[in-house]
C-alpha cells in the first residue's frame, strides 16, 4: 500500500505557518518537517495550537499565511480530500466513526482512498466496479484481522464502547492507506490496558511503513513510542528534539511539564 519512499526523505514540510482567529494567532510561525519512517509527537499545554496545526496540515482549516509542501509539491491550498487521497491522513480527538454502519461497513467506506470510486463505472455497472467492490471487501477483511476487530465486525459502530470506537477511528485512518498519519490525541480517555493496546497498534502501523505524528498529553506513551518530540506553546514551537533532550529542556519544563499536565 505504502509506496516506495526513501527512508529519511522529508514527506511533509510546513514553513512559517500562521493561523489567526479574529485577532488571536492560534498558530504563529510554526515550521517543521516530517521524515519518512519517523514517529514524532507534538506536545504542549492546552490551547498551544497543536490541533490547529493538524487542521492546517490536513486542510480542514485554511492557513492565514505560510506554506505546506507534500513530497516536494506545494499543497498549501489543496483540498482536505485531495490531501487524504494522496496519503496525508488525519484522525480526530473525538472518536469519529460512521455510527449507523457496522464496523465492517465502516472499514469498507474508509477504503475509498485505496480503491477510488469511478462514479460512471459504478452507475453503469461496468465490470471494473464489481472488481473494485471485491477489492474493498478484501481490504476491509484484512484490516479486521490485523487489528483484531473481527469479533465486532457486525456491530454498529455507534453501539461500541468508547475505547473500541476510538480504536475503530484509528483503524479508519489506517484504512485510508496513509503515508503520513496525523493522530490527534489517540490516547485521550483510554484506560491503561487500552493505552498498551494502542502502543501495539502504533508499532503495527509503523511497521507497515507509515510515518506517524501524534498530538498527545499522555507523556508515558509519548516517551516510549516517539523518536522525536516537538513542543508548542502559545502558537509557537519552543523545542524540538529527542525525548531525552526534551525531558531536560528547561523551557519545556517551565512551560509545560511544570504545569503538572503530565497525566
Amino acid at each position: 500500500m505504502t509506496a516506495e519512499v526513501a527512508p529519511g526523505e522529508v514527506l511533509l514540510e510546513c514553513t512559517d505557518l500562521v493561523r489567526r482567529f479574529g485577532g488571536v494567532a492560534a498558530v504563529d510561525g510554526v515550521g517543521f518537517g516530517l521524515r519518512a519512517g519517523e514517529v514524532s509527537a507534538l506536545i504542549g499545554p492546552n490551547g498551544a495550537g497543536k490541533t490547529t496545526v493538524f487542521n492546517l496540515l490536513s486542510g480542514f482549516l485554511a492557513v492565514t499565511s505560510g506554506s505546506i509542501t507534500w513530497r516536494g509539491r506545494d499543497i498549501t491550498s489543496a483540498k482536505a480530500t485531495a490531501r487524504a487521497g494522496s496519503g496525508l491522513v488525519r484522525t480526530f480527538q473525538q472518536p469519529r466513526v460512521f455510527a449507523a454502519l457496522t464496523v465492517h461497513q465502516n472499514l469498507v467506506t474508509a477504503t475509498h482512498a485505496v480503491v477510488p470510486s469511478r462514479v460512471s463505472a459504478d452507475l453503469l455497472g461496468l465490470p471494473g466496479a464489481r472488481r473494485r467492490a471485491r477489492q474493498r471487501q478484501g481490504f476491509a477483511d484484512e484490516l479486521l484481522d490485523r487489528f483484531d476487530l473481527a469479533v465486532h465486525a457486525e456491530v454498529k459502530a455507534g453501539d461500541l464502547p468508547y475505547g473500541l470506537r476510538k480504536r475503530l477511528g484509528l483503524v479508519l485512518g489506517v484504512a485510508a492507506s496513509p503515508r503520513v498519519l496525523l493522530m490527534d490525541e489517540p490516547a485521550a480517555g483510554l484506560n491503561d490496558a487500552e493505552v498498551e493496546l494502542l502502543k501495539q497498534d502504533l508499532a503495527t502501523i509503523r511497521g507497515s511503513g507509515v510515518t506517524i505524528c501524534i498530538v498527545e498529553h499522555h507523556m508515558g506513551l509519548i516517551m516510549s513510542v516517539s523518536d522525536r518530540v516537538m513542543v508548542m506553546e502559545s502558537g509557537r514551537m519552543i523545542a524540538d528534539g529527542t525525548p531525552a533532550e526534551i525531558a531536560n529542556d528547561e523551557r519545556v519544563v517551565a512551560a509545560y511539564l511544570g504545569q503538572g499536565a503530565t497525566a
Binding site: S58, F60, A80, T81, A82, A84, G85, V89, R90, T91, F92, R96, V97, F98, T109, A110, H112, A113, P116, L172, G173, A175, A176
Partner: peptide, 8 residues
C-alpha cells in the same frame, strides 16, 4: 468531516 478526512 470523517468522510472528508478519508478522501471522500
Amino acid at each position: 468531516t470523517l468522510s472528508r478526512s478519508l478522501g471522500i
